[in-house]
């Protein structure tokens, strides 16, 4: 038993026949080959699989692909535009906000959601907003600095931060 789903991912349209039990994260990784979204736990604790769905961040391991039918998904692969890094990507690079890089795609997507809601967050607000995303490498200090860097950049150059 399968179902046909139609959705847009990073601005492209897809139509696929999927098993009803297929998780959205497996659909993105295994069906579409978008392996930038990672899986790091079985219990929705780590946030590595965070993507934007209809403009809000979701953990793509807690959604079925069929639930995304008709929706709009943005993954880390869709963050840069025309080869230019998004201010968040640039901020993580400038401020050494990543080491092994495995949590990074989820961190970026959660941070994007934060900056859409709150364009000028304090360090405490950033730490609170990233509660659902685990990093084992950085101790979070540089991630906070990276998000602040991006917020400043997006304030200075509003066009740089695409708030879709």
């Amino acid at each position: 038993m399968t179902r046909i789903i139609t959705l847009r991912v990073n601005g492209k349209s897809y139509e696929n026949e999927v098993s009803p039990r297929l998780l959205l994260v497996h659909y993105l990784r295994d069906v579409l080959g978008l392996t930038g979204t990672h899986i790091a736990c079985d219990t929705s604790q780590c946030g590595a699989c965070t993507v934007m769905f209809n403009g809000e961040s979701v953990k793509s391991c807690t959604m079925l692909a069929v639930q995304a039918d008709g929706g709009e998904v943005k993954t880390v692969e869709g963050l840069a535009t025309n080869g230019k890094l998004h201010p968040l990507q640039q901020g993580f690079w400038e401020k050494h906000g990543l080491q092994c890089g495995f949590c990074t795609p989820g961190m970026l997507m959660s941070s994007l959601n934060l900056l859409q809601r709150n364009p000028d967050p304090t360090p405490d607000e950033i730490r609170h907003a990233l509660e659902g995303n685990l990093c084992r490498c950085t101790g979070y200090q540089n991630i906070v600095a990276a998000v602040q860097w991006a917020a400043q950049e997006m304030k200075a150059k509003p066009a740089a931060g695409v708030a879709e």
């Binding site: 978008l34 392996t35 930038g36 979204t37 993954t75 880390v76 692969e77 963050l79 840069a80 890094l85 990507q89 993580f92 690079w93 990543l98 890089g101 495995f102 990074t104 795609p105 970026l108």
Partner: peptide
Amino acid sequence: DPRLLTGNG
């Protein structure tokens, strides 16, 4: 970093 930040790791 550029590859890790763009999902290309």
